[in-house]
Design a protein around this nucleic acid. Sequence first.
DNA 1: GCCCGTTAA
Length: 703
Amino acid sequence: MERMKLPILQYEDQIVETVEKNPVVVIIGETGSGKSTQLSQILHRHGYTTSGVIAVTQPRRVAAVSVSRRVAQELGVQLGEEVGYAIRFEDRTSEKTRIKYLTDGVLLRESLSNPDLSQYSVIILDEAHERSLNTDILLGLMKRLIRLRATNLKVLITSATLDGEKVSRFFSQCPVLHVPGKLFPVEILYSPERAKNYVESALKTALDIHVKQPEGDVLIFMTGQDDIEKLVLKLEEKIQHLEQGSVMDAIILPLHGSLPPEMQIRVFGPPPPNCRRFIVATNIAETSLTVDGVVYVIDSGYVKQRQYNPSTGMYSLDVVQISKVQANQRAGRAGRTRPGKCHRLYPSIVYNDDFLDATIPEIQRSSLAGCVLYLKSLDISDIDILEFDYLDPPSAESLEDALRQLYLIEAIDEGGVITSLGRSMADLPLEPSLSRTLLEAKDLGCLPQALTVVAMLSAETSLLPARSSKNTDKKRKTPPSNLPDGSGYGDHIQLLQIYEHWDETFYSTEWVKEHNLQVRGMLFVKEVRKQLSQIMQKIATGPLDVQQGRRRKEIQTEYRNLRKALCVGNANQLAERMMRHNGYKTLGLKSQLVQVHPSSVLQPDEDGMLPNYVVFHELISTSRPYMRNVCSVEMRWVAPILQKIEKLDVSKLSGTSRPSKERTQEGDFSSQKEDKPITQAPEDPNSRIQAARERFLARRGNR
DNA sequence: GCCCGTTAA
């Protein structure tokens, strides 16, 4: 059997012995080592499932499902019995389950109702090198848990290329085991200089491979849909000319996230005989999807990355250089089935001197309001939010921004302590502004409508129709969509109307297609709405289903209440129109000049002016700073919020004026397995981050 | 006039 040869099995004794002796072990295993499927089974064989369940976290849903399926198969058991999985909307575990695969988000949720995670004897954090926001929080929680939990707990942190030393230091010098993978060698070829235009450069390299190199598929990493479409067109054109010669056939496949699923699946089908496939992809092919048969990789060296600026509250989507970890991950995609080649469209000096070692972790690129609320809602008195032990701490500025946001929506009081409202918000799997909107809507009697809007917003990117690439005619505008118009109030109301129409058709797939929306997205909204309704049902009265057959007057009242709830929930996302034109300035710590996104359905009045005050769901800087998903609100709702903003004192919010907390509880537990001191001086994280940030920003400015 | 990489509760 293939499995018998998995490299990790040769290390079984060593792994078990190390786990016996240490609460935390780091395991570095390259692709193909079998760590995701074997580690849990090894520990199961050695009795670790007698005292509890083995949990294995995955950053992605599909991985949790597919890996658990394979393990069940290998153990010859029914999936959902001894081996199961739990992901959002789907729990396939039972009382018999001893090995449980779950997304890290699900484990975080479980930790909310059971901070000790007492049902688990072992927790394996898999793919930790991806450094997802959730994984990073779990790392901090695990560090605390191994000291505090009364019953024995083993933690394994496994990853492909993670800097093992760094994690080991984080966990008091815990041991690091290396397990080799089963990758074939990949020859790295650098360009003499960095391409001025990486699309052109990729095109040349691809054609060169096609003409000169033996069979084998080519995977090309671009940054986004635009690049991909350009390159696909050019490749098709050039290869058609070539084919009159003697080269083999070729097909060219785009691959990115906004492609409908049936188009994504094409890359998994068997390739036609005697035909080379060119797959032009975003970083979706870096980790999320694995394409078989790739022998050549072309790496542009760039990626599109979303980042949050805590001082302005603005997201931006920038093309940035990849990290060394990412470059190696991309190269590795060429060596899965046989030796391969990776063409890097940049010189080795750029790789060595310019690329960051690792991608900046998500926790340092995101708004932390949700994360901070989550930590505050855990009933653990020894956690002070500003002192929470992160592998890579976020900046003080980012934490303060999060506290300010939470205070403005009354999730914490002026002393930084979580309110009962805040606790209710933490129960909802939503960003805080949306949770707050729901709770306010409950009091205002428009909860069914708010549930719909919030569910629609949380799926919004997967709703929009796929942009067609053929629309290159300059004069052709987007076809007039016959979607509802939000009655002039803006995008939130439009989202509500869209869903209500769909509900009227009894969730017809045809209706969705006719209106150029994505079926997958709408079905997701339906699931989210159902989940949120179930949670809200516990504290709300009255029906929460979509309301139908109301009178016009009732609907107007609902819209008004809904807009009011949105205003309360988005207290940190308000903007005021300029006097003489339709530009806006945001109301907050640092005012920004912004505009309503052109896709908005917000309507101007008879004089052509937009409303004086709006709330927005998101601030994003693309070609300009834009507010996306905008809704008109009234000044009288805004006024009290403005007063609050003026009086706000961040130093109180961060709890620095509070007396330090007692830590007696900690001493009781820690005596158990404290052979090494836990308190280690962090090696000056702030200066390290600062330096990384500066490099990062400088690079951004360069382009 | 815009147009988004990815993931998740």
